[in-house]
């Protein structure tokens, strides 16, 4: 493909991406439109937004949540919904400061209400302190506490939906990880409906865009920042699955989308086969749990 042949399918400007299903080449302006249109179509198809919703965006300040806020800021007014950004400051020295600054800059520029909650405020200690002596469990511990922190922030701001920046790669990796762990309950778990009184519905509008498409979108719009990597990043299994899936996606384009279709098929057939297991409330904190004591209380030795 010579540069002279690499032209946008819509306007004949030089193409910046080549996409499949349908096969097309797009210039910068048309790729920005195309990516936004796919996210909007997913929100409408899956009825993610209702008029009157107050949508909280989990804004870490990293690439995915930055793209999510930009897109929701563009689309929500027309859907009749409001927007608030919430950031969880876990307390990770040398990492979180810069992403917090990025989050503040973006919400300031867009004029979006921004609320920050901290692990120190919610759990009495920051993540660095909680992890002393068990640094290798960093992602697991942080994941459990961050979910609780986001749920708490959602309550504080009175949001009716929580939007997170999970992209297609994240979601496909999770499907494969659940398969490799033999974890059918987690594969079936659908958080998009919420649990009245405990969790608002959780929506993932970016799950139709690959990580590469999101970075391309941000580069083209001038919002890409090369931020530091979390010092606790890289749990063994996700890291291996990420590499494996990237290889499969290159040799067999569409692998990640087909994994998502597989997950949706499993959820659909499981839904009709048997009712989901009932959840109880934690005897220590009163939040939902599948056992007697929730993961947060167990992790914090309450």
């Amino acid at each position: 493909m010579t540069p002279g042949e690499n032209l946008c399918s819509l306007c004949n400007e030089p193409a910046v991406v080549r996409l499949v299903e349908p096969e097309r080449r797009l210039c910068a302006a048309h790729f920005i439109e195309d990516a936004g249109a796919r996210v909007l179509a997913a929100m409408e198809r899956e009825r993610m937004i209702s008029p009157g919703d107050r949508v909280a965006v989990g804004l870490s300040g990293g690439k995915d949540s930055t793209a999510l806020l930009l897109l929701l800021h563009r689309f929500l007014p027309a859907l009749g919904a409001g927007l608030v950004a919430i950031t969880v400051d876990e307390g990770i020295a040398g990492y979180r400061e810069e992403t917090l600054r990025a989050a503040r800059d973006l919400t300031g520029e867009l004029g979006v209400e921004h609320v920050i909650v901290t692990f120190a405020d919610l759990f009495g200690e920051d993540l660095d302190t909680i992890l002393v002596g068990r640094e290798a469990q960093g992602c697991t511990v942080c994941g459990v506490l961050r979910r609780r922190a986001l749920a708490e922030a959602v309550k504080r701001v009175g949001a009716t939906k929580l939007a997170t920046g999970h992209n297609l790669d994240d979601e496909a990796q999770s499907v494969l990880m659940n398969v490799l762990r033999g974890d059918l309950p987690r594969l079936r778990q659908d958080t998009s409906t919420g649990q009245p009184g405990h969790f608002v519905p959780r929506i993932k509008p970016l799950a139709v865009l690959s990580e590469k498409e999101i970075v391309t979108y941000l580069l083209l719009r001038g919002y890409f920042r090369d931020l530091p990597e979390c010092p606790y990043a890289g749990t063994a299994l996700r890291s291996e699955v990420r590499t494996m899936l990237a290889g499969l996606e290159h040799r067999h384009p569409g692998t990640m989308v087909r994994l998502m279709q597989f997950r949706d098929g499993v959820r659909e057939s499981a839904r009709s086969a048997e009712p989901a297991k009932a959840l109880s409330t934690c005897r220590i904190c009163g939040e939902l749990t599948s056992g007697e004591v929730c993961q947060v209380c167990r992790l914090l030795d309450r």
Partner: peptide, 20 residues
């Protein structure tokens, strides 16, 4: 390098990987 894990900028412009 796996092409799905990177973005390539040729002479200052992002390009698809099948460009020469």
């Amino acid at each position: 390098i796996n092409p799905t894990t990177v973005i390539v900028v040729k002479n200052g412009t992002i390009v698809p990987e099948d460009v020469t």
